[in-house]
């Protein structure tokens, strides 16, 4: 299962000609140069792309946490007009292919000069367009006893205070799950970054890796592998430390 991954790690320390001859994990001849070669292979050093990806990820996490938790509170705890139809719309957006909105979105964002900025990717997150996370949080809030809200209400708290001081602190696990999933999915996203970020100084790691393939063809597998590993490490770490939340998150959205 993970043999190909381990082999890629091993091969990133091999000289190019040995990558095609050693199927094992033992490195007969250690070659460190793949990493510095790959790091500086494009017009900007790889640290620039890592930084771009990190900014994007932070913006998206912040956006999802704030906007989705607000929407989830309304759906889970408040009674309002058109609630049912809005809830159905929200669930349906989870299943909507992004392609049906990407063309007009691109037109819209290019008209306001946002192509080659991070806004086209971050702003939708600030507007709670990730229904999956709203739903995940709704599920979690439903599990919090309503007595907690009632007690706060008797003390004179309104909805904003109940949300901020009672519900939010109790839903930290759901927020953590959202943050980790947003991290992994935004970091790995290729399609939207490919469309919006065409200027090399704005590349995320995924687009940079693609540009790397285009520029070297398949002549420099060692460096390509080395940079591939670099882009995978943050996801691997997020997985390692957030696994508990990831397992719980997808189990609770999938199970009644």
């Amino acid at each position: 299962m993970i043999y190909p991954l381990l082999w890629m790690v091993a091969s990133s320390f091999r000289p190019n000609d040995l990558i095609f001859r050693e199927a094992g994990l033992v490195i007969s001849q250690v070659d460190w140069t793949n990493y510095p070669n790959g790091w500086d292979a494009l017009s900007e050093p790889f640290s620039k792309y890592l930084l771009n990806s990190a900014i994007l990820v932070l913006g998206c996490i912040l956006g999802n946490l704030v906007s989705c938790s607000m929407a989830a509170y309304a759906f889970a705890r408040l009674d309002f007009k058109f609630k049912k139809i809005m809830f159905v719309l929200m669930l349906m957006t989870i299943m909507l292919p992004i392609h049906v909105i990407i063309v007009p979105q691109y037109v819209m964002f290019s008209q306001i000069g946002w192509v080659n900025t991070f806004w086209p990717i971050i702003v939708p997150k600030l507007l709670a367009t990730d229904g999956f996370f709203i739903f995940l949080m709704i599920q979690f809030i439903r599990g919090i006893p309503k007595d907690m809200d009632e007690a706060a209400r008797i003390d004179g708290a309104g909805h904003p205070r109940i949300f901020l001081q009672v519900i939010l602190p109790l839903m930290v696990p759901a927020l953590a799950t959202t943050a980790i999933f947003t991290f992994i999915w935004t970091w790995s996203d290729f399609f939207t970054s490919l469309i919006y970020l065409t200027n090399p100084s704005n590349y995320t790691v995924q687009v940079a890796l693609n540009a790397f393939i285009d520029s070297t063809g398949e002549s420099n597998w060692g460096a390509l592998f080395a940079m591939s590993i670099v882009t995978l490490i943050p996801v691997f770490l997020a997985f390692l430390f957030g696994q508990k939340y990831l397992v719980k998150g997808i189990a609770t959205t999938g199970i009644k």
Binding site: M70, L78, M86, V100, P104, P124
Partner: peptide
């Protein structure tokens, strides 16, 4: 209260999803 909590979501629904 619901209107306030759903401000971002509603804007997103019309501007980012239904409009496009």
């Amino acid at each position: 209260a619901a209107h306030i909590f759903l401000i971002p979501w509603t804007i997103g629904l019309f501007l980012v999803t239904l409009g496009p």
